[in-house]
Structures are given as structure tokens and as C-alpha cells.
């Protein structure tokens, strides 16, 4: 645990509200290399509050990389330069004394900025509400072991289900596409036997909602996979594409 502090220049996006023009503010501070980047922002905010200045609005909650609340674009990369971690797990020892760090919010039409580094990701919830579930009522279910599921399928479904809904895939994609997020949920249920009855209805409904909400299309740059804190594979997108075609070809539904 090093005693030495890093002297850094921060360029942080400040924007008073959704309809305000934002710009970068510059701050200089010294930070312990053992701090996380969010703890550094806590420090900064404490200093600002001491000077009666408004602190930088940013969101975080669990600070252990699972709740998906935090999400900053650090030097152009969602969740910063280290792969497979969320912003809260990025520690300052990965930076050098004298560095300048640019911190921006996630940018996408479907994720409007609320204030400073806070964005509105409720579009994700709207997508989930259209089909991200299996329709079973409480109580009316068979025994947990009634349907055996192969270990491989269960693990693959788990890999898809591990998505934390942070939105880094959208932030990283040059098209601000939500395909990785949506496909992870579609895949989880498409893989499991429990998800089969609603499989085709689900994928159509969720894709339709995704398109309505103003996300871009996927152009297979795979930036989403590279920036995903949980390493969710673009194979999920392929699976969703396949299911979408099959839904269109196989079902008689002409509405969705």
C-alpha cells in the first residue's frame, strides 16, 4: 500500500440539467493510488462542498461491480482502460503521476443526460418490461428438479444472465446500439427449457421496443463485448438474430 499520492488533472463533464449546454471543467487533485476512481470523485466532491460549490453528480451504489449503477467514460472508454471491470472497480494505481483524465457520461440518444455524469437508462427497463420474463405466477410451478437442464446449457444461460445492465455496451458502440444487452436477456431464456413457450414472441417484442427507443443498429464492431464489465459474448447477438429470423419465418403472427 503505497503512501505516495498521484497528482492528476481531471477534465470532467459538467452539465446542469437535461436542457443545458455542458462543458468540461478542470480540477487538479492528489489521490492515493489505492483509491478507486469513484472514491477520488468522492474526495473531489468533498472539496467542492467545502468550498460551497456544487459537487459533481455521478451515480454509484454497490461499488463492487454488480449493481450496474456506475458507468463513466474514462479517456474514451466506458468503465475505463482495464477490461472486465465496472467503473467502481477501477483503481487509481492504473494511472501515472501527472496524467490528465477525461471523464464523460455515457452518450446515446436513448440515454439522455440528467445532470453532469448521470444519465437516464430507463430505456433498458422499458425493453425488459416488453418480454424479459417467463410468464409464471407465484406458486403455480413444478419442482425445481422436474426438468433436467444440462450443465453446459445452464452455464451458458448463466453467462448471458450475468449482465448487470450498466449500459457500457451502448456507450461503447459507435452506433449506440443496445443489441448486446437485449440479446443477453433473449439468450438466457432462449437457452433454457423454461423460456421456450414465449421464445419467439419475446424476441420480436424486445427488438421492436429496442428499435422504438432510439438505439442504433449493430454493425458487428464488437466494441460492446470488449467493454462489457462481465465479458458478455457477441454470440448472444448472433443467437438473437437467429431467433428473430426464425420468429419471422416460423410464426404466423403478422402483428409484431
Amino acid at each position: 500500500m503505497a503512501e505516495k499520492k498521484l497528482n492528476l488533472t481531471l477534465k470532467i463533464w459538467r452539465q446542469a440539467g437535461p436542457n443545458f449546454v455542458g462543458n468540461f471543467a478542470e480540477y487538479k487533485l492528489a489521490v492515493s493510488p489505492d483509491s478507486s476512481i469513484l472514491e477520488m470523485l468522492d474526495d473531489l466532491n468533498n472539496d467542492l462542498e467545502n468550498k460551497n460549490l456544487e459537487p459533481v453528480a455521478f451515480e454509484s451504489d454497490c461499488r463492487e461491480g454488480i449493481c450496474g449503477t456506475c458507468g463513466l467514460v474514462i479517456n474514451g472508454q466506458p468503465h475505463g482502460p482495464i477490461p472486465k471491470i465496472a467503473t467502481c472497480q477501477l483503481h487509481m494505481r492504473h494511472f501515472n503521476d501527472g496524467d490528465t483524465i477525461w471523464i464523460e457520461p455515457f452518450r446515446a440518444k436513448a440515454f439522455p443526460i440528467i445532470k453532469d455524469l448521470m444519465v437516464d437508462r430507463s430505456a433498458f427497463d422499458r425493453i425488459q418490461e416488453t418480454g424479459g420474463f417467463i410468464s409464471v405466477n407465484t406458486g403455480s410451478v413444478p419442482d425445481g428438479n422436474a426438468i433436467p437442464i444440462s450443465k453446459d446449457i445452464a452455464s451458458e444461460a448463466m453467462d448471458s444472465a450475468t449482465c448487470i445492465g450498466c449500459g457500457a455496451c451502448v456507450a461503447a458502440c459507435k452506433n449506440a446500439s443496445a443489441m448486446l444487452f437485449v440479446s443477453a436477456k433473449v439468450s438466457q431464456f432462449a437457452l433454457l427449457p423454461q423460456g421456450q413457450p414465449e421464445r419467439y414472441q419475446r424476441v420480436q417484442a424486445m427488438v421492436k421496443k429496442m428499435d422504438e427507443l432510439g438505439f442504433g443498429s449493430c454493425s458487428n464492431t464488437y466494441a460492446c463485448e470488449a467493454e462489457c464489465p462481465k465479458g458478455i459474448s457477441v454470440k448472444n447477438i448472433a443467437r438473437m438474430n437467429r431467433d428473430y429470423f426464425m420468429a419471422k419465418v416460423k410464426t404466423e403472427n403478422v402483428e409484431s
Partner: peptide, 15 residues
């Protein structure tokens, strides 16, 4: 889908 772009573009590091 992204009306305002990033000031620092890190896409060379992920794609």
C-alpha cells in the same frame, strides 16, 4: 443514435 459524440474517442482500444 448518438447526437453528441465523445470528446475523447477510445474506440481504437475496443474495436
Amino acid at each position: 443514435a448518438r447526437p453528441i459524440g465523445y470528446t475523447v474517442n477510445g474506440s481504437s482500444k475496443n474495436s
